[in-house]
Amino acid sequence: MSISPGYAFLMVVVMSVVIMGQRATPFFLFTKGTPKAIDYIGQALPPAVMAMLIIYCLKNVSLTSFPFGLPEFLSIAFVGIVHLWKHNNLISILGGTILYMFLIQVVFS
């Protein structure tokens, strides 16, 4: 540790305060009822954010070098098909994760 524990502590506090402030921003801004435009954003946002998070998770996958995103593609297809078929979050997610681990550790290692 090249910096003092006191200073490291301060760094953590600063990060914590900034992030808490960000998470609380909408609640500070709209204390007296929400404008219609904000209601609309709040409703329309979740599917758009899910799309963003999925792509965010996959941002480091390379399509031009081995294994060309195949483990991700196969696992995602598996999750999608099983989910549309069984409608059970746990089965889809656990199954997809086990498949993905098998693919990157054994098949495409």
């Binding site: 599917p47 899910m50 999925i54 998770c57 991700e72 999608g80 989910h83 979050n89 997809g96 994760t97």
Partner: peptide
């Protein structure tokens, strides 16, 4: 590869919302 659980979670929620939302435009 265990962190794929997170990707799968977001995907599953995305699919459920695709089914439940009256419009697909936001997605």
């Amino acid at each position: 590869g265990m962190d794929f659980a997170m990707t799968a979670l977001f995907l599953v929620i995305f699919l459920d919302q695709w089914r439940d939302y009256p419009t697909h435009i936001p997605a």
